[in-house]
Amino acid sequence: MKRGLTARYPGPGGMFIVSFLCHAVALAIVANWNLFGELKPDETPVTYVDMVTLPVASPQSGTPAPAAEKAVEAPPQPAAPPAPPPVMSHPVQPAKPAKPAAKAPAAATPGNAKETPAAESNDFTQRMAKLEQLAQERRQAEVLERLKKKGTRTGMPGAKGAEAGSDYPTYLQSRLKDALKEVMVSQTKSPYVIATITVSPDGRIAQYHVEKGSGDPLFDDAVQRAVTLAGKSLVPPPGGAKFKGMFRFRPEGVGINK
């Protein structure tokens, strides 16, 4: 019986060939499957809700035009991480009233405003506001810089519309993960937030909708900060399409009970 079999089959070498063929077939299937991105929506319905294809000329068009001048300033900043300019801004104190005035005119502090002539304080106000904004940008640039460094490790799909977007969720996941690492803070044991994130075709976060909060304001805010930070440097979704996915944010290594 055994002998008969071995005679008919071409031995271990033959078996290897058979195996190799099967592998080849498998590879072809995987490749095919990757090529036909249309199949995916059925398989991951929650992640891919609303795959509306919007006509977008180029995937890079997401970069907003008005910010062009700042683009010149910002890149060099990350090079010098801790910021000397903001330090200077603190001794110059009277600028404080500027903030209330700018943000909520109604709540302006009359007592403070009286002290300086209007014109002078206005000028000052603007300068201060600028300085503050610079400081804020620096903080964000700092974090983004770190995120970028990490981002390259995990990698992300190209933004070429022709390619199938099977990995965009993975890409987004890794960007969010890195961002959450930067701002993670919580006061409860196993908080989690479920949120729907919509990335517009130009690579900006068009909508952040919390489906289920954690009940821990610290963690809720941390997630929002993470999304905001991650949203600053996203590659647009492939195919000039909008991307919408549901994400669950939680601390690492913590089981979900509730």
């Binding site: 970069t63 700042k70 933004a159």
Partner: peptide
């Protein structure tokens, strides 16, 4: 990706990004 992420980083102002979020 590395190349592509860089420009948007610098170009989006904090205010603009924060708003949709």
């Amino acid at each position: 990706s590395a190349v592509q992420t860089a420009p948007p980083t610098a170009q989006t102002t904090p205010a603009e990004v924060a708003r949709p979020a």
